[in-house]
Amino acid sequence: MFDQTPEQGRPDRRAPSINVLGGVLEPCSTQPVTGFYCDGCCNTGAEDIGLHTVCVVLTAEFLVFSRSRGNDLSTPMPQYGFPGLKPGDRWCLCASRWKEAFEADVAPQVVLEATHAVTLHVVPLADLKRHAFRPH
C-alpha cells in the first residue's frame, strides 16, 4: 500500500498530496519553512497526529488567540530552528486549531490550493471557503 522511499529505506506513510479542491497540493511556505515534514507543504501522513494540514495566512488576532491556548507561534525558538511567526506569514496549522479559531471567530484565511484534503475530515469545505485567502 505504501511506497518505499529509497533515502529512508522504509515505507512512505504519507497521504496523497491532494488539496481540498481535489487538485495537486501546492506549497504553503518555504519562508518560513512549514509543514509537518518541513517540506514547505501541508502534507500529512500516519506520523502527523496533529494533522498540520491547513495552510493559513497568519493574523495578529489569531497569533494572540493561539498563544492564549498554549501554542505560542510568535516567539522565536532558535534552539529548534523556529524563527517565530508574524502576521502575513503562511503556516501549516493543525486542522483542529483552525476549527477552534473558527468557532471563536478568529480563524485566519486559508489558502485552499495549499490545504490538504485530509482537513475535510475535521472541517467542512464550506467553512474553509468562507475564509479563503484572496490576494489583493
Rank of each mutant, 00 (worst) to 15 (best):
S17I: 01
H52K: 14
E7F: 09
Q79W: 07
C92F: 10
F65P: 06
E26H: 11
V122Q: 11
L128G: 05
E26R: 15
Q109D: 02
W91I: 03
R13N: 12
Q109A: 12
P27H: 10
D48Q: 11
G50F: 06
T30G: 10
L120Q: 14
C92A: 13
K86Q: 15
L25Y: 02
D12Y: 06
T44W: 01
V110P: 00
F2P: 07
D127P: 00
V111R: 03
P135L: 13
A114H: 02
L51M: 14
D3R: 15
L85G: 08
L25R: 14
L128C: 07
M1F: 12
P135Y: 04
F133N: 05
V122F: 00
Q8A: 11
P11I: 07
T34K: 04
D39Y: 03
L25H: 08
T30S: 13
L63K: 02
V54D: 01
D105T: 10
T59D: 08
E47M: 01
N19Y: 00
N19F: 00
Y80I: 06
V24A: 15
R69W: 02
F82P: 07
D39I: 09
R10V: 15
N71Y: 10
R14C: 09
V122N: 06
H131M: 12
G35L: 02
R14T: 15
V54N: 01
K99P: 00
W98A: 06
P16V: 12
V106P: 04
P32N: 08
V123N: 03
P78V: 11
L58D: 07
V24W: 03
T5V: 12
L125Q: 04
R130S: 13
V118A: 15
T5Q: 13
E113N: 11
T119M: 13
C55E: 02
F2G: 11
A126K: 10
F2H: 11
P87I: 09
L73S: 07
A101C: 08
D127M: 10
L63Q: 03
C38R: 11
V56Y: 05
L112V: 05
V56N: 02
G88Y: 06
A95L: 04
C28E: 09
G9M: 04
V54T: 07
A60T: 08
L25N: 10
V54I: 11
L125H: 03
P76E: 04
V20L: 03
H116R: 14
E100N: 08
D89C: 13
T115I: 09
L25C: 11
M77F: 07
F2N: 07
V122M: 08
Q79V: 12
L85A: 09
V54Y: 00
W91E: 02
H136Q: 13
M77C: 04
F102C: 05
Q4V: 14
V33W: 00
D48M: 09
H52N: 14
T44C: 04
T34L: 03
P78D: 11
T115M: 06
S68H: 02
L51Q: 14
A15Q: 14
